[in-house]
Amino acid sequence: MLLSVEKITKEFPIQKGLFGTPTAYLRAVAGVSFDIEAGEVVGLVGESGCGKSTVGRCVVGLHQATDGRVLWDGKDIAKLSPEERRTLRRRFQMVFQNPFSSLNPRQKIEDVLLEPIAVHGLFRPSERAAAVQELIEQVGLSSKDLQKYPHEFSGGQRQRIGIARALACQPDLMVLDEPVSSLDVSVQASILNLLTKLNRDRKIGYLFISHDLQVVGYISTRVLVMYLGVVVEEGRVDQVLKSPRHPYTQTLLKASLGASVAVKGEQLSPAQVVPGCAFYNRCPHAESRCSNEKQDFQEVDGVWRVACWKWHKIG
């Protein structure tokens, strides 16, 4: 398995006592597990504050999980030696949401792309210039653009540069954190086409993080729906998006099509401790049982699982 995530939990201290010891925690991710095989595209969808970006950052090692394990190629990343970590690191890359703040404004694009190649010692030094040229063309920009600085590009072009930078390491998995949400719909389409092509031609797997169910549904084969730190539904895209079983997924799907929704209110704060189902306060089907019982996954059909005890009554 290329990537395995086993019951990761991530807590951030939000209040500190007299000597700087944390006294209160915000639980951004509470026991999330999933696997990604080589070349697979998995979508992670949810609203702001549900912990999806934190999961992404734990996966590439930008955050260390408070509990649980992240395995790259079967190896626990918390236990790797620095050398092993660097070697494996190359294969797990990240593309960030904001193409304006994720590029160094003082670095020419050529240097942006050369740096990861040099760090990981890819190619012979004499071949690197050619490699960089190939990279920039692969993401649909021209070799003339290599001499420019980030401010000379539009948002869509910068996102292409962010993708080229990740590609420079020849990764096996890319974590894409909201890669198209700051872009106009016409530009978004061209980035999605580029990503689809890269996945097909180079067999790179993606963890595609987005708040937009339609985008995730378009690009992924499997999807995880997150709400307040937990996965509430997962399965193949054609299962989950055709007839979602969890009330939250149903709401999300309706809302993404511009239809009215039955839910009230907003997501609770992750700093609150919820004894039962996290969606309880908004769910149109809630009963008293939902408020005090943690929801375990129930199998709907094969990989299709849902964390709601009432799923067969509300489908």
Partner: peptide, 20 residues
Amino acid sequence: GLLAAMPTFGQQGKPLTSIE
């Protein structure tokens, strides 16, 4: 172009029309 650029999960595999 705007309408064709909107992704939906029904059209997986088909490239989206982007406006260059």
